[in-house]
Amino acid sequence: MNLKIKYFGMLTEVTGCTEEQFPLIEGNIADVLQLLMNKYPLLKEKEFQVAQDQVIVDIKKPISQGEIALLPPFSGG
């Protein structure tokens, strides 16, 4: 079972992709983020919010099958 991870804005420059499949693990979203930060250490320095299945959620929320999106703030105008 896989989890789809989506990246937006400057985060795609850290990960080199806009989305990827990630093995579904037990735990909460923070656990997934920890694994992602191990994979992409530069992610630790980035600001972002997390959406699970198109809803912005607290990272303490348990993982469910579906999609997790990492959403950074943009400042340009």
Binding site: M10, E45, K46, E47, Q49, P73, F74, S75, G76, G77
Partner: peptide, 20 residues
């Protein structure tokens, strides 16, 4: 409610620095 804290200046570049 989306981004509670103002990001530190310089952490996120704008159009002038990055292009658009």
């Amino acid at each position: 409610c989306l981004f509670p804290k103002e990001p530190q200046e310089g952490t996120i570049p704008n159009c002038t620095a990055m292009g658009v």
